[in-house]
C-alpha cells in the first residue's frame, strides 16, 4: 500500500549554506490494515516521513508509492485525490479556527462533494465515536487539548480513509487522554484502516505490541514486527 524505496530528504538552512539530512536512504513497506508505529528521538525524521506520505514534502532522492502513485512525481493539482484517501491527525491539531468542531469535521465531506444528508448523518456519528457530541458547536479555542485532538481524529475518520497518519497525537496530552486516543486508533485499525503512528512515548509503544520502525538521525535502524521502544 505504501512503499519507501531508498528515500532521502535533505533540507537547507534558510541562508542556504547548511544541509540538514532529515531522512537518509529509508526503505520499507506498509501493507493494508497494518498498525505501524514510528519511533525516534526528536529530529530523527518521524514528522518528515509522515509529511512525505502526505506529499507535503517531496523526497530529495528515492521513490515513495501510495496505492501505485509515485508521490515524488505527482502534480500538485492531483494531490487532493491522494490526500482524500488519508486521514491526518496533526500534533498541533490543525483545526480551522473559524469553524466549530462540527464544521471542522463536516468540511472534509463538503470538500469531497458529499451530499448534505450524508453530512448530517455521519458527522454526529463520528462525534459520538470520539465522545464529543456535546461540543459540536464549540470553536477550537473553546476546547481543551484532549478535546481538540479528538476532534482532529474525528476529522481524520469522517471520510473513511484507507490510512490514518497520526503525528505524535498524544504529545500534548495527559496520560489519561493519551490512552483514550491510542484506544481510539486501535479501534479504527480493527475496522481495517491502516494506522501509522509517530510517537516518542515509550509506554504506549510497549503496550501496543505492534510493528515498530525506529529512526535514528534520519536512518531506519530497526523494523520489528512486534517491536519495543529501544533508543
Amino acid at each position: 500500500m505504501i512503499s519507501f524505496k531508498e528515500v532521502s530528504k535533505t533540507f537547507f538552512t534558510r541562508a542556504g549554506h547548511k544541509q540538514i539530512i532529515a531522512l537518509n536512504g529509508v526503505s520499507f513497506e506498509i501493507k493494508p490494515a497494518e498498525f505501524v508505529s514510528i519511533v525516534g528521538k526528536s529530529g530523527a525524521g518521524k514528522t518528515t516521513l509522515l509529511k512525505l506520505i502526505l506529499a507535503e514534502e517531496r523526497p530529495t532522492r528515492g521513490e515513495i508509492f501510495f496505492n501505485g502513485d509515485n508521490l515524488g512525481k505527482i502534480k500538485t493539482a492531483k494531490l487532493p485525490r491522494i490526500r482524500r484517501k488519508i486521514g491526518t491527525v496533526f500534533q498541533d491539531y490543525k483545526l480551522l479556527p473559524s469553524k466549530t468542531a462540527y464544521e471542522n469535521i463536516a468540511y472534509i465531506l463538503e470538500a469531497v462533494g458529499a451530499e448534505e444528508n450524508e453530512i448530517l448523518r455521519n458527522v454526529p456519528e463520528v462525534l459520538g465515536i470520539v465522545g464529543l457530541e456535546s461540543r459540536a458547536q464549540n470553536f477550537p479555542e473553546e476546547l481543551s487539548a484532549g478535546e481538540r485532538q479528538r476532534i482532529a481524529i474525528a476529522r481524520a475518520l469522517i471520510h473513511r480513509p484507507k490510512v490514518i497518519l497520526a503525528d505524535e497525537p498524544t504529545g500534548n496530552l495527559d496520560p489519561y487522554c493519551a490512552l483514550d486516543i491510542i484506544k481510539l486508533l486501535l479501534k479504527i485499525n480493527e475496522i481495517g484502516t491502516t494506522v501509522i503512528l509517530s510517537t516518542h512515548d515509550k509506554e504506549i509503544i510497549n503496550r501496543l505490541g505492534k510493528r515498530v520502525l525506529t529512526l535514528e538521525q534520519g536512518a531506519l535502524v530497526r523494523d520489528e514486527e512486534r517491536g519495543h521502544f529501544i533508543l
Binding site: L54, E56, A77, L79, P80, R83, R84, I86, T88, K94, L95, L96, P97, S98, Y107, I108, E110, A111, V112, R155, H159
Partner: peptide, 15 residues
C-alpha cells in the same frame, strides 16, 4: 494557515 490546512486535508484548489 487555514489555506494550508485545507490543502492538507484534501480540499481542491477551487474549493
Amino acid at each position: 494557515e487555514e489555506i494550508k490546512i485545507q490543502r492538507l486535508v484534501g480540499a481542491s484548489n477551487w474549493f
